[in-house]
Design a protein around this nucleic acid. Structure first.
Length: 424
DNA sequence: TCTGGGGTCCTAGGACCC
DNA sequence: TCTGGGGTCCTAGGACCC
């Protein structure tokens, strides 16, 4: 059966999540900001029309925001994660072969759905997701993932598609591809785009017909696959059972810069605690821990940025053990006299926690440690994240992330449920 | 004053081995 | 003067994604 993919992508996802619970936000410019209310990470169509770019720092567009009364929100990942889950569960009802590609995107395999009109089926999916979750989506259909991405872009930008575009029944594919700039292809970033443009490859159609040897040389094997995919030969399969994670990161920029070792110790201890929780939730243990810190490269002044990797004798998911190595590392890494802007931890060498290779000379009582972590996680699940935490993460937490304009956790916190007032 | 966070894969180069 | 060849593994850095 020839492959056929549908890419379902939520429109302006974070903004759409905010709108679900505040209908007055429809039809007006709305944006959502990254951590510390730093950069724009989502924009409503009205905000895009004002020229607000993706990733722009908020402080640079403040006058514009005021003039046009743009509604501004801090990121509310709890809300977005929950609504994403609802969208994915809805999609699964229509197609069991589904890959969750990101928080707001999923690939579906439609290759078995031969009896159906795919555009009609897409419309049904779209209508149902909208009705069940309140989230608008666009759907692109094609023989490869890369083409499905392009089809999705067409669905999103052309209102006459009514949100669904099937490239396989499009009579004039070449004309469409010739109108899409090469940098809009999935996998072509700013660097590859420059390389391609310098070589006269400016449209998606050019790229599809590009010389394979030249592509192999300049864009590597990834570029070659991409060209094949544009030609309708599927190289990227549907990853319907998620591949095991390769790494877990927890890093943050500081609301105000850190200038003492004590604060830095607390911050990275908190990050590694968070990373350890993710590790246990995934049923994994880590062999390696990398710690990194950096000053603010946007500011003038002395710069310092460095990283250090340590190895465990036995893969671990125990918070105290991870904190111990983190503290050792950060004391080596830290230099006095700098204003630190960001720090973080990275766990790699991940193995299944149930298959950890033990060490004959291991000093650690792993059974007791496991019981402790189970109890620790249960208490925090029951009473809320951070109910129990290690003293190393500090008591004052001056370095925490700021979210001044965050909406309530409407769907995941009893105290923040929206209220509906009945009027008679 | 104020510039996110969490991932993936590939490649080149060095260390090391026979 | 002449200075193997081929393989693996690891790491750092680059490029990309949302």
């Amino acid at each position: 059966m020839p492959p056929l993919f549908a890419l379902v992508d939520c429109n302006n996802f974070y903004v759409s999540c905010e709108r679900v619970f505040q209908p007055k936000l429809y039809g007006i410019p709305v944006i959502v900001l990254s951590n510390n209310d730093g950069c724009v990470v989502a924009r409503s169509n009205e905000a895009k029309a004002l020229g607000i770019g993706m990733g722009v720092p908020e402080f640079q567009i403040r006058p514009l925001l005021r003039t046009h009364q743009v509604q501004v929100f801090s990121s509310n990942y709890t809300l977005y994660g929950d609504l994403s889950q609802r969208v994915m569960e809805t999609l699964e009802q229509f197609c069991p072969d589904l890959e969750r590609y990101s928080i707001d995107e999923a690939f579906l395999s439609l290759s078995g759905f031969t009896a159906r009109n795919h555009t009609d089926y897409g419309r049904t999916i779209r209508r149902t997701v909208q009705r069940w979750t309140g989230i608008p989506v666009s759907i692109g259909i094609a023989e490869t993932k890369t083409l499905a991405k392009l089809a999705n872009r067409i669905a999103k930008r052309n209102s006459d598609t009514r949100g669904v575009f099937d490239l396989t029944v499009c009579p004039d594919r070449d004309r469409l591809l010739s109108r899409i700039p090469v940098e809009e292809v999935w996998g072509i970033g700013p660097n590859h785009a420059r390389t391609l443009r310098d070589h006269g490859i400016t449209t998606t159609l050019h790229l599809r017909h590009a010389d394979h040897r030249w592509i192999r040389k300049h864009l590597g094997i990834v570029g070659l696959r991409l060209v094949e995919e544009l030609g309708g030969r599927s190289c990227l399969p549907l990853e319907d059972c998620p591949l095991p994670k390769q790494s877990i990161t927890c890093s943050r920029s500081f609301g105000t810069p850190i200038t003492t070792l004590v604060e830095m110790e607390e911050a990275v201890s908190a990050y590694v605690s968070r990373a350890a929780e993710k590790l246990r939730r995934e049923g994994l243990a880590a062999m390696c821990l990398t710690i990194f810190l950096t000053t603010n490269s946007f500011k003038v002044g002395p710069q310092y940025s460095n990283a250090l990797t340590g190895k465990f004798p036995v893969a671990t998911d125990s918070t105290p053990e991870l904190i111990r190595l983190t503290l050792q590392g950060i004391r080596q890494l830290y230099r006095e006299g700098y204003e630190y802007k960001k720090a973080g931890v990275l766990l790699t060498g991940l193995v299944s926690a149930s298959q950890v290779q033990t060490d004959l000379f291991d000093q650690h009582d792993r059974v007791r440690s496991k019981q402790l972590m189970v109890a620790f996680d249960q208490i925090n699940d029951r009473w809320g994240a951070g109910t129990l935490r290690y003293a190393a993460t500090g008591l004052h937490r001056v370095w925490t992330t700021q979210f001044h304009r965050r909406s309530p956790a409407y769907t995941t916190n009893w105290d923040e449920l929206p209220l509906v007032h009945a009027t008679s």
